[in-house]
Structures are given as C-alpha cells and as structure tokens.
Simulated scan of single mutants.
Amino acid sequence: MSGAGYDVVVDVDDEGDLGHTDLQEDLEFHASNFATDAANARKLPGSSSGLPAPATNGGSSKRFLWTLSFYAQFFDVDTSSVLSRCWAALYPRANFLDVLEGNPDLYGPFWIATTVVFILFLGGTISQYLAHTGAAEPFEYDFRLLSGSAGLIYGYTFVIPIALFLALKYSGSEAANILECLALYGYSNIIWIPVALISWSPFALLNWIFVGVGFGISVAFLLRNLYPVLSATERRTSKLLLIFVVVLHAALAIAIEFLFFANKHKKDEPAKPDEPIKDGDPAMLFIF
C-alpha cells in the first residue's frame, strides 16, 4: 500500500492496550519519509516498475580502426603532461614508464619529431651556407635536407619501436607495449632539438662533441627504461636487443652529423684560365 499522504507513522507495542488513556507509554511517533522516497522514486527511471536503472555508455563504447575515436585516445593528453614528460626525458629522475602513469600518448612524439625535422633542416642549411661563404657561385637551398630529415627522424621514431615490440613479442615477453615503446622513442628525440640548434658551427670537432653528448643522453634514457623490459626475456635475447638498440641509435647520431653538420662542402675554387696548347705538348698527339 502506498504511503503517500501520511505525515506520521504510529508504532504500537506488542503488549500495548489501546484502551489506556495514557498513550505515551505505548505509542512512539516518528517523522515519515514517504514523501522523500516518492520524490527519489520519480527521479530514478524505471524505479516505478521495479527494474534497475538502464546502464549508460559512459564512454565504454567499442572503438574501431576506421573511427576517429580510436585514434583520439592516443592523443588524450594535456599540455602540462606533455611538458612534464619532455622534462622527464631531458632530466630523468624516475622511470619514464612511471611518469606515463599508464597513459602513453602519440601527441608528444609526433610534434617532437616534427620539430626535430625542421630544426635539422634549418641547422643543416646554415651549416652549408657557412661552408659556401666566399664561393664564386651563389648559395642555393638544398631542400633534399628536408625530405632526408623527415625520412630519417620519422622512420627511426615510428619504425624502430614497432620492430622492437615485435621482437619482444616473438621472444615471449608479456611486458611489451607498443604504445609505450613509441612514446619512449618519441620523447627520447627531445635532446636533438638543442643539439640541432648549436651544431651548425663551422668547427667540425665541436659539432661532433655536441652530437656525441646528445647521443649519450638519449641512449642512456632508452637503456634505463628499456632494460627492465628487455631483461625479462632470455639472457641471450636481452643482450642482442640491447646491442640492437645501441647500434641503431649510434647510427642515427652518425647520420645526423654526416648529413647535416659535417661541413663537407668545400669552397669553390675560381676557375683557372685556359692555357694555350704548345707545340710538342703530349695533348697534341690526341688531337691528331
């Protein structure tokens, strides 16, 4: 029976006698909550029929490869998080996978790689310009540096982590995560931004030192965070993968130095005037 319309509930003791005129010993009065319960029942859909409230999606809908929401989850990060991760890559005080907090992103790796591509092109162009200063012919921009830097940086940042992930899965590692590998390699590129900004000097030895420092910081960052994952595999496999990581990273550093900051372009020497051919010159034999 519905209790709507009642304001007071009357409880009668089991041994009470309604014939008594003194009801204080037999009756207890309590404030009713029927009105509150009825209001709450109107707020919950389906409560009047006794069925539970319908479940909402709550963002748990399935994401498919051909939907934008599938790729949006890899860029679900704010600016402060990206900056803190960049700082953690430059000055690592804790394990980078702990800094990610289970939310690896591709936003930071993509924009870091893009920034490195353009700064390498800019630094390489300045280096070539300084090498050609005073040449007879005017300086011309080499836009092959831009395509070369894009292929080098994007290829290294996104292909090598996938290859490493596949090698870990093939060796039976259960701790491998492709997004974490991509984020780790992507944020390791942050060191090449300051290196590319200062490695365009005309002094080749100084450029080698800058690139070597960048290599040391970035490879130490990679080994520190990859070693716990690689050590979970067989001992021989972990050693091979560690060598694989170090050798490919060294190849990246050497490629950056030779392609952009080697100053291998020499100044063009002025053309010598043609000398007249004298009689008896051996060249006369080829003419006749």
Rank of each mutant, 00 (worst) to 15 (best):
A232N: 11
E25N: 11
N103M: 06
S188I: 08
L182H: 04
L285Y: 09
H30D: 08
G102S: 05
D13F: 13
D22C: 00
D26E: 07
L241N: 05
D78E: 05
E234S: 14
A150H: 14
G214S: 07
R235F: 08
P202N: 04
S69T: 07
L130F: 01
V247F: 13
F74V: 01
I178E: 07
L145K: 14
T114W: 04
D281S: 15
L285G: 00
S171F: 11
Q24D: 12
F165M: 00
V213K: 00
I243D: 10
A175E: 13
L205K: 06
K169L: 10
R63V: 10
E174F: 04
V116Q: 01
L18R: 12
R144D: 10
I191H: 02
I126R: 13
W111R: 02
L230P: 12
Y156L: 00
G59V: 11
Y187A: 08
A167T: 03
V211F: 10
I254E: 05
A136H: 01
G186H: 00
F96Q: 06
A220S: 15
S173R: 07
N263L: 08
A55E: 10
E15A: 04
E25T: 07
L226K: 00
V99F: 00
L252H: 09
T233G: 13
N207Q: 04
V211P: 01
D105Y: 08
E25C: 01
L205Q: 09
D268H: 12
F288K: 09
S171E: 11
W192R: 09
T67I: 00
A53R: 07
G102H: 07
G214Y: 06
D17C: 06
L27K: 04
S49T: 14
T237G: 02
P282C: 00
A35R: 08
E140P: 01
Q24C: 01
N103H: 15
D142C: 06
